[in-house]
Amino acid sequence: MQCPFCQHASNRVLESRSAEAGRSIRRRRQCLKCECRFTTYERIEYVPVTVIKRNSSRELFNRSKLLRGIVRACEKTGLDAAKLETLVDNIEMELQQRSTREITSADIGELVLQQLRSLNEVAYVRFASVYRQFTGIRDFADTLTHLQESEEKVGSPPYVSNGNRPSSTLTV
Rank of each mutant, 00 (worst) to 15 (best):
Q7V: 09
H8Y: 14
A9S: 13
A9P: 11
R12M: 04
E15H: 14
S16D: 05
S16C: 07
S16I: 10
R17C: 04
A19H: 09
A19E: 11
E20C: 08
E20P: 08
A21M: 10
A21Q: 12
A21C: 09
S24E: 05
R26Q: 07
R26A: 06
R27S: 03
R29L: 00
Q30F: 03
Q30I: 03
K33F: 09
K33E: 13
C34Q: 01
C34N: 02
E35A: 10
E35K: 11
E35W: 09
C36G: 06
R37C: 01
F38L: 01
T39V: 10
T39N: 02
Y41N: 12
Y41H: 11
Y41F: 15
E42F: 01
E42D: 06
E42M: 03
E42C: 02
Y46W: 13
Y46Q: 15
V47M: 15
P48M: 01
V49A: 05
T50A: 09
T50H: 05
T50C: 07
V51C: 05
I52G: 01
I52P: 00
K53Q: 11
R54N: 07
N55E: 03
S56I: 13
S57C: 13
S57R: 13
E59S: 09
L60S: 09
L60I: 09
F61W: 01
N62R: 10
N62K: 10
K65W: 07
L66W: 01
L66F: 03
R68H: 14
R68C: 12
R68P: 06
A73Q: 05
K76Q: 08
K76V: 05
K76E: 09
T77C: 05
T77A: 04
G78C: 08
G78L: 12
A82M: 11
K83S: 15
K83W: 14
K83D: 15
E85V: 15
T86F: 14
